[in-house]
């Protein structure tokens, strides 16, 4: 039984984008804060901390979820993937990222990492989604800049390949 008391700071180890990393956290620390400020993975963004905007979405053991609704300690020992893992080591964008660029699917880019991670999970499960399915999954994210059209087009493009 793992137990961490309230003001205790313990070392939380997890795999982030293939690398074993750890940092200290008390039990109440949110995974979003832990990733950004504990591990320096600032590509994951925070837009609401109550689970609506989706900008904090990351993969835990391959499954897309809100890192603001997850405690860092819950991710202990798990495999976490964030937007920083998507491009090739030389910076080449992956097909999903490229499609976002080609379809002007981002403006300020703040919502974008979360959306990319959601569809990284979703397209792995369902590589040929219908447009309704794309819209259904995308509805778990808020974007204030684009009006969403470019995002839908980008994902459709990937789905058609």
């Amino acid at each position: 039984m793992r137990r961490v008391n309230r003001n205790e700071r313990v070392r939380i180890a997890l795999t982030l984008n293939g690398r074993r990393l750890s940092a200290e956290a008390e039990p109440r620390m949110l995974l979003s804060d832990f990733l950004r400020h504990g591990l320096g993975a600032t590509g994951t963004h925070v837009g609401c901390e109550h689970g609506v905007c989706g900008s904090c979405t990351v993969l835990i053991d391959g499954v897309a979820q809100r890192s603001c609704l997850t405690l860092a300690v819950q991710a202990e020992g798990r495999e976490v993937r964030t937007v920083e893992s998507l491009a090739a080591p030389d910076g080449t964008l992956n097909p999903l990222q490229q499609a976002f660029r080609a379809n002007h699917a981002l403006q300020c880019g703040f919502c974008t990492p979360g959306i990319l991670m959601s569809f990284t999970d979703y397209l792995a499960r369902n590589p040929k989604p219908t447009i309704e399915q794309i819209r259904d999954v995308l509805s778990g994210h808020l974007c204030r800049c684009t009006g969403y059209a470019g995002i839908v087009a980008a994902i459709e493009e990937v789905a058609k390949r």
């Binding site: 950004r36 993975a41 600032t42 590509g43 994951t44 963004h45 925070v46 964030t82 937007v83 920083e84 998507l86 491009a87 910076g91 964008l93 990222q97 976002f100 660029r101 981002l106 300020c108 880019g109 703040f110 974008t112 990492p113 990319l116």
Partner: peptide
């Protein structure tokens, strides 16, 4: 702008 923003390498104030 997109290369950085799509790779999680934006430099927003909190980053």
């Amino acid at each position: 702008e997109d290369l950085a923003l799509l790779s999680g390498r934006g430099r927003y104030a909190d980053d």
